[in-house]
Design a protein around this nucleic acid. Sequence first.
DNA 1: AGAAGATACATGCGCACGCATTAAATGTCG
DNA 2: CGACATTTAATGCGTGCGCATGTATCTTCT
Lengths: 129, 129
Amino acid sequence: MTSEPALVERWRSLLSSYNEVAGHLERALQETHGLTMGEFETLDRLITVTCEKRRMQELAADMYLSQSALSRTVARLEKGGLVRRSLCEDDRRGIFVSVTEEGLQRHADARATHRAILAEHLGTSAPAG
Amino acid sequence: MTSEPALVERWRSLLSSYNEVAGHLERALQETHGLTMGEFETLDRLITVTCEKRRMQELAADMYLSQSALSRTVARLEKGGLVRRSLCEDDRRGIFVSVTEEGLQRHADARATHRAILAEHLGTSAPAG
DNA sequence: AGAAGATACATGCGCACGCATTAAATGTCG
DNA sequence: CGACATTTAATGCGTGCGCATGTATCTTCT
């Protein structure tokens, strides 16, 4: 049973941790690799999973992005050649998303930055609780 | 010494906790009280502190918002009559911000919603770590 | 088969954000 | 005092987001 003041405390802590890390992450990924945090996370989720193609919907379920945000994020990634969209034959409303070679490469590069930022800005702060 | 995979794990957990809570909070505060999360947090910080007036700069230091975002947030709050801006006589570059009666009231109302959302969406999830 | 409703993704719109710049006030040093 | 750097807050601009809606496709029920 968490008391209310403690709850607010926990929220503030979460808020500042998140913003600290997200801020640096966003800047670093953008500057060094031309990627939004959302773009990186999307790539990351596309790659971490075994199957080659994933439907928008599955992707959305894994993520914090809204459906519309995901749609646009994938559109940007495709425009940048990092991802490919293809029709789903079984259900022609569906869209499959797959990572291109360039996408794999860019993600691999960006991952280093990602880890570094996490180590620097998440590693030092105490895990809440 | 946190291992790298664990770090990423921790980040993803932070990311989803944050977005879960922030999403619901934003919606609830907007719908019920016409307040942005940033606006509420700003009011909250203005009120939690002992002194009556606070300078933008001090406020900014407490918060995750950028200087420009804070400036606009305060402008919105003022436009809504929840906050008042006044010149700082000692240093006329500075701006003091103080909460109006209406601001106090609105904050008091919103606080209930805030706590409720936290209890619902932060209370159940295990504190990371 | 045909109509009504559900589902999947795309898009119009408005909003809050961050970065870079600007305007006003202060501090510094000759 | 007067020129120049510094600091504080406001603002122009571009970007990504969520909500609501649009369009195409699938499902269900008769």
